[in-house]
Nucleic acid binder design. Structure first.
Lengths: 227, 227
DNA sequence: GTTAAAATGTGATATTTATCACATTTTAAT
DNA sequence: ATTAAAATGTGATAAATATCACATTTTAAC
């Protein structure tokens, strides 16, 4: 497995951006704006899907809570991404939860209207199929990394992934607990390793925000290539 | 997270079994039989998809090979399952590989014919959407288990999952290396834990095959409920 | 049936990471 | 501005698992 950060990107913004202008307009005509303050749940595990969401601004994490109350974060959605549609499309309850990582502006399309759109918008089903097929590959990569790579390599990889989520800010603004829950470790272990990365001049920490100083070296670490 | 074995089942047999008889006949009219001997690759990582497969008999694993050559097994497909379609549907190369775990009889539908079927068979796109949506939930559960649960709980859970894959035989026939690669551990660690499970009368081992003696207790262990 | 290769089990040791406890810093509420 | 709560960092220790080496068993090839 050769690590490629792009292979960890759901590319959920492509569903909407791949529609033609008329179809996009039709799609958005069904949307109502919603605001989610930081920490607010968008949907939750075992909840019944009521519709789908599109992020206009901000970021949201999807996660699952283990029996001991520890979260596992799978993905961070960002501007342009469509989300909340998996459980809706298979008529099941949500297996995951979604929470705003910061104040978010979203659009909401209620379930019945979305189901109408599925029939009316010709290529929408195809786009969903393409997107979810691609997501499968992302999940496969994520599982391999989490199951097999040591902590140091996982941190290097996820920092690179997060750099792309926060590219417009330049700094990774994820709280420590969240980052620990993403890479599958305890927050103390994460702190120790971030300190090591700082000492090796791989990252710099400015008021808790993380900035990458040496993406190439992090990429090598993610690929198990230690110099 | 409450562990439910059913939430780790892709249910890929439902795609075909949910078609009406005429659509099924149309679908199968495009299929040619193929045999895969044990150990033979069905498709492989980075390979270009040439079509989709349906398992008529036998089992096949999908896996990804890490940089150090260690495999990570995600799923075991069985009779009735449709497979090999993810990469095809998003027009990408395979992110995973598939290998026959035992001699398999499969049906193969070449890519161009499958794409015709997608247009001709009315509900097929909907079924694929439903199935892949459901798979997303399975992947979410798998990631949480692999990232957060200790080895003992993972083994308990995967034994229960595997019992269902091998229900027609009654014994789990997966080689040790494969089971270790599925639950994310070294084969030595697996051996030690299987010995413990044997000593606790949770399983019995007959000529390398594993039979579960106490599924209820295993279920409790999988749910972090130790007595 | 025999032999070599592969798979698996076991013992010992090393490494990684978790956990616990507490100190320090940052943030939120007032 | 102050104070309490939450988040984070650090030290020490425990636990889990990997790794290495080798023995034993099973399987495959001839």
């Amino acid at each position: 497995m050769k690590i490629d950060v792009e292979k960890f990107n759901f590319q959920s913004d492509r569903i909407l951006s791949s529609l033609g202008p008329e179809d996009q307009a039709l799609f958005l005509s069904e949307a109502t704006p919603l605001k989610f303050k930081r920490g607010k749940l968008v949907f939750y595990e075992e909840g019944i899907p009521t519709g789908v969401f599109i992020i206009e601004s901000g970021r949201a994490k999807i996660f699952k809570t283990g029996l001991d109350g520890k979260d596992q974060i799978f993905y961070i959605y960002k501007k342009g991404d469509l989300l909340g549609y998996h459980a809706l499309l298979c008529n099941e309850h949500y297996e995951d939860s979604c929470e705003a990582l910061e104040d978010c502006q979203m659009l909401f399309i209620k379930r019945s209207r979305f189901e109408v759109l599925l029939k009316k918008v010709a290529g929408l089903q195809t786009l969903l199929i393409q997107n979810m097929s691609h997501e499968f590959g992302v999940m496969v990569n994520t599982i391999t990394v989490l199951a097999q790579k040591p902590l140091r390599e996982r941190l290097a990889l996820f920092l690179l992934i997060l750099q792309q989520k926060y590219v417009t800010i330049g700094n990774i603004m994820l709280p420590r607990e969240d980052l620990a829950n993403m890479i599958g470790t305890a927050r103390e272990s994460l702190s120790r390793l971030l300190k090591e990365f700082r000492e090796e001049n791989l990252i710099i920490i400015e008021n808790k925000a993380i900035r990458l100083l040496n993406p190439d070296k992090l990429h090598k670490i993610a690929n198990s290539q230690y110099l």
